[in-house]
Simulated scan of single mutants.
Amino acid sequence: MSELRAGVVGLGTMGRHHARVLAGLAGVRLVGACDPDPGAGSALRTVPVFPDLDRLLELDLDLCVVAAPTLAHAAIGSRLAAAGVHTLIEKPLAASAEEARILAAQFERAGLVGCVGHIERFNPVVRAMRERIGGGEVGTVLQITTSRQGPYPQRIRDVGVILDLASHDIDLTRWIAGAPYVKVSAVTSRVTGASGHEDLAAVVGVLQDGTVVNHLVNWLSPVKRRLVSVTGELGSLRGDLLTGTLWFNGHDGGVAVPGPGGPVRVPGGRTDRSQVVGPEPLAAELEGFVAAVRGHAGVVGDAADVVPMQAGAEVMDVTAAILAQPAAVVEVSAATGPADAVRSGPVRVAAQLSAPPGADRVAALLGAGESQTGGLPVLVAGYVPAPGSRRWF
């Protein structure tokens, strides 16, 4: 396999970027793309652009990137798996956790490389944070918070901020902490109505290791932000994913506050600021995908710097729990191993509480059952809206 033949499905903003990077990768030849939009061909002038997938598959692809609308991911991915094409599907992997697991199973049965484009894992700041957390620099992780905000994206029409934005933060949080979500709740709001889905959300969750997580997402802000903060017993890390800046605040010989059991050390004193430099995240992601395809063919040895489809399905478990409405007790499957450990079973709704006509109220429901894999009870507290309210849980 001296040269890999690559294709791209969907030539929106992300699809054009994928095509650009693939065209420049050594040992890869971009041979074609497909998009039903008659004007999509103007985005690529060096390779043919077809209106349907059948024509693209006639080019004998080795690998393909899917950057089509989310609702089409399952159908397109299934066809590529049946055709024997190694595939990277942009996040979210599918429109539901069930579809995502079906896709993962199809690629596994076919013996193909199947992965999902959670690009933040390839951001140099996120990678530096994961390495420093793994090295024990902040000690036991207590809390991870993220803020992902910016103007309304013209490219999005089929999903809201939970699938488009929060899925990034859910995956990177699981990855840097090395633990899955076991509890999650959220308040969301639809303001513009342009997409027909939620425009902002405040998410609260707990990981299997006890880490508390908070995600603020919206596409209503004129200021674009991509921030991640990790607070631990020994200090805190704060990363700006847009500027590549990483701050560390740590102890400097005994900063402490009174506590019930004696003095408690808190971050303070030492401050380090660094500029993290690395390759373009999309280029790193696609290089990992190509290396995995070559490794699958036995051309090189160990090469697995990809986000497996199973991990994408687990992110969909969490987004499904967040989007459950009205307020519901949901069970997010808990893995017994690291965050990317394989586990089976979809999100299960254990109970549901409807709001009485004309009344807004707060509901706190304790799940009667336990996670089949983790044995952890789930508590979800949600805001139950009156009919017609913009807000829902």
Rank of each mutant, 00 (worst) to 15 (best):
M1Q: 13
M1H: 13
A6L: 09
V8I: 03
V9M: 07
G10A: 09
L11E: 06
G15S: 14
R16M: 07
V21H: 02
A23G: 15
A26P: 05
L30N: 02
V31C: 10
C34Q: 13
G39C: 06
T46R: 15
T46D: 15
F50S: 05
F50A: 07
L53V: 03
E58C: 04
L61C: 04
L63V: 05
A68R: 10
P69K: 15
H73E: 05
H73W: 07
A74L: 10
I76W: 06
G77T: 05
S78L: 13
S78W: 08
A81G: 05
G84Q: 10
G84Y: 04
H86T: 07
T87I: 01
I89D: 06
I89N: 01
R109P: 00
G111M: 05
L112Y: 07
V113E: 06
G114D: 05
I119W: 03
E120A: 07
F122E: 02
F122K: 13
R130M: 02
E131Q: 14
R132T: 10
I133V: 14
G135R: 15
E137S: 15
V138F: 11
T140M: 14
L142H: 14
S147A: 12
G150Y: 08
R155G: 04
D158G: 08
V159P: 01
G160K: 12
D164F: 08
D164L: 02
S167Q: 03
T173H: 09
I176W: 00
A177G: 10
Y181T: 03
V184Q: 07
A186P: 06
V191R: 15
A194G: 00
A201F: 04
V204A: 14
G205S: 13
L207R: 15
L207K: 14
D209N: 15
T211Y: 09
N214K: 08
V217Y: 11
P222D: 14
V223D: 12
K224N: 10
L227G: 00
V230N: 09
T231S: 13
E233K: 15
E233I: 10
R238D: 01
G239E: 01
D240I: 04
G244E: 10
G244Y: 04
W247D: 14
N249K: 11
G261V: 07
P263N: 07
R265S: 12
V266S: 06
P267V: 08
T271Q: 15
T271S: 14
D272L: 13
R273L: 06
Q275V: 03
Q275T: 11
V277L: 14
L282T: 01
L286W: 08
A291S: 05
A297D: 07
V299Q: 15
V299F: 02
D302A: 10
A304T: 00
D305G: 02
P308V: 13
M309T: 01
E314D: 14
V315L: 10
T319P: 02
A320M: 05
I322T: 09
A335G: 11
T336F: 05
V342S: 11
V349C: 03
A350I: 00
A351P: 05
Q352N: 03
P356W: 03
A359K: 09
V362Y: 11
A368E: 13
L376H: 11
P387K: 12
W392T: 04
F393K: 08
